[in-house]
Every structure is written in C-alpha cells, then in structure tokens.
Simulated assay, not measured.
Amino acid sequence: MALKYELEQWGAAVQAYDSQDFDKALDTFETIAESAKFHFNMGLIYATLGEHEEACRSYKKAVKLDQFFAVAYFQKGVSHFLLGEFEKALANFNDSLLYLRKNVLIDYEQLGLKFRLYSCEILFNRGLCYLYLGQTDQGMGDFTSAAKEKQTEEHEVIDEAITVQGQGFTVFSIPVGVIYRPPEGKLKNVKTKDYLGKAKLVAAVDPEDAFTGFTGAQQQKKQGLNTTTPITKANTEGAVIQINNGSNSRPASPTEKPQRPKSLSSSPRNPPFPMRASRNPSIARRRPPQNEGTPIYVDDDKTSNGGGQFPDRRLPASEGTMRSTSPAPD
C-alpha cells in the first residue's frame, strides 16, 4: 500500500474518532488494517463502545502481527477482565509482563501512542485477577510488588487497594481518547503544495514595454544603437551578398540573380568557372611572377619575354603535324 494513501486514511480515521464518528473511524481503519497498530486502534474503539468481544478479536490480530506488542496484551487482558473472563485476562497480563522484559515502563509516545505502560499497573491488574479467582495470596503478593514499583501519583491507589484487599477497585487501562496517531509532520508533507502559484496578468503602461525578450536589446533599440554586425557570404555564383545590418540595403531575393561586384571585370575573357570571394577581389587577376626570357600566356592574348618583343602564336597546319615557326623579321 502506498505510504501517502495510508497516511491520508490514517489521518481521516483519527479525525472521525475525535469527532466521535466511531463507525466511520472503524470503516476507515478497516481499509488500511495491515499493521498491528491499526488493529490495536480498532480494539480501542470497540472497547470505547463497550463491545469488548470485538475488541479482543482486534487485539488478537494485533499481537498476531507483532508478538512483542506488550500494550496490546495489556489491553486484551483489560477487555477479558471486564467480560468476567478472569483466566484469559490473567494469561494476557502474564504475556504483557513477559514482553515488558523486566523494564519499569515502556513509553509508546514516540511511536504515536500517548501512553506509558508501567510494570506496577500490570502487576496490580494481575493481582485483581488472582483475587477474583479466589487466589488471595498470589493476588496480595502482586499488590505488594506493584507498590514497590510505583512511578506516579496515580499509583497511590495501589496502597489503598492493599488495605481493602482490592474490594471495589478495577483494573488500570488506557484512557479514552488515546489511540495511535500519525506524525503531524508527515501529514503536512502529504498535502499537495503549490510552489509555483498562479499566473498573474500584468498590463504594460508603455506600449514599447509590451514584449517578452532581452531587455538589453530593447534598450539599445530605443537608443538607436546598431545591435547587429555586417556579415558577408558568397552565393553559388561567386557574388558577395551583404546581410542586412539595419541600413537601407536589402538582402538578395532567392529568385533574383545577384550582381557581380564592381571589383570584378565583366570582360568575356574572364574564366567561365565561378571565382571565390575574397577580401581583395583583385588578387584573382594578379599575374603570376614572370621569369625573364620565358614567354607566358595571359588573359590579354599577349606574351612577354621580358624584352618587349611579342612573337607570333601560330596554329598547327594539320592534326599531328607542326609547322616550323621563324621569328618575325626585325
């Protein structure tokens, strides 16, 4: 069973018990009665209603789940005593005293039950059972032992019972209203908490403030500062396109063919393949270094041998045959 559900039902059952709605409390405990303390609570409720037979059955389930449950044996003996079943009561008080393990008391408050089980109370109850069974010596012996282990002012009645041999006295018991209660801290943690709260609608006084974004960019926009930097990139045909940086220039349309930069020549002698964009487009037309005396062909259809002379460039007469060339006459 989920711990949250168990705590919620436990708290609801205790609240019903405090409101004296005992039927609801029993029904609620029945849904979570998987531990000894819940069956024990049901036994206390039945005892409050005077149904001690049902109370004994609940106590029996409790000690079956926890055989060292000393206070459950104690209360089971009380119910048997009130039913006149003194032998059964005597046996339960013996078990309660056994599981007290020679301690003077057991404090159940830290476990949720505001009650202390004292050894003198168990001895006194057992002594009453002996007296009602006609065993006066054993009964008075338990009274004497109980008087030696008194702990509180309420135990002063033991001395009075000794003087009259228990006539008119009844057994010690857990007071009405005392049951196992869940820790308050755990009950508070079970409740759902809204850490985020609810959203609030805030109206902007200035229309320029009706935005969601970075305030720094908005402040620069108000002051007329350029918040972007120019970026250039090359398209597929080698043209340089400048990204819009806040000026009047507009980016090239996808269907519009970009124009070539002015730094590039529009001469038909330019190579047909695209040229790479460069910070200095004139580098693309820079002539390679010339070696003196070696003719070099360039785009202007001229050769230079370093001496200012331009020999003829002749075509072959036929495929596979080269005509001899002679230098032009002076």
Rank of each mutant, 00 (worst) to 15 (best):
Y5W: 05
Y5I: 12
L7P: 00
A13F: 01
V14N: 03
V14L: 03
Q20N: 15
D21Y: 04
D21T: 04
K24A: 10
F29R: 03
A36K: 07
K37C: 03
K37S: 11
F38L: 05
F40R: 01
M42H: 00
M42E: 08
M42D: 00
M42G: 06
L44R: 14
I45Q: 06
A47Q: 13
L49G: 07
E53R: 10
E54C: 04
E54D: 10
E54M: 07
S58V: 04
Y59F: 15
K60M: 10
K60A: 13
K61M: 11
D66K: 12
A70Q: 01
V71T: 02
V71F: 01
V71C: 04
A72M: 03
Y73H: 06
Y73P: 02
Q75L: 04
G77M: 03
G84N: 08
K88D: 08
A89E: 04
L90Q: 07
L90D: 03
A91V: 02
N94L: 07
Y99N: 05
L100G: 09
L100M: 15
V104F: 02
L105Q: 08
Y108L: 07
Y108P: 10
G112L: 03
R116K: 15
I122G: 00
L123K: 07
R126A: 05
L133K: 08
D142F: 04
S145I: 00
A147R: 09
E154I: 02
E156P: 00
V157F: 04
D159R: 02
I162G: 00
V164Y: 06
F172Q: 01
S173Y: 08
I174L: 03
G185Y: 01
K186T: 05
L187K: 05
N189E: 15
V190C: 12
K191D: 06
K193C: 01
D194T: 06
Y195W: 09
V202C: 02
D209K: 07
F214C: 15
F214H: 14
A217T: 01
K221S: 10
I231V: 13
E237C: 06
E237S: 07
Q242G: 04
N248D: 14
N248P: 00
A252M: 10
P258C: 09
Q259R: 11
S263N: 12
L264T: 06
S266G: 09
S267F: 02
R269K: 10
N270S: 08
N270T: 13
P271R: 07
F273V: 13
P274N: 14
P274G: 05
S278M: 15
R279E: 13
I283Y: 10
I283P: 01
R285I: 14
Q290E: 11
N291Y: 08
T294G: 02
I296R: 11
V298Y: 06
D299S: 08
D299I: 07
D301P: 00
T303I: 14
T303K: 11
G306N: 12
G306V: 13
G306Q: 11
G307L: 13
D312N: 10
D312Q: 11
P316Q: 09
S318C: 06
E319Y: 12
E319P: 12
E319K: 14
M322I: 14
M322P: 01
S324H: 05
P327K: 03
D330W: 02
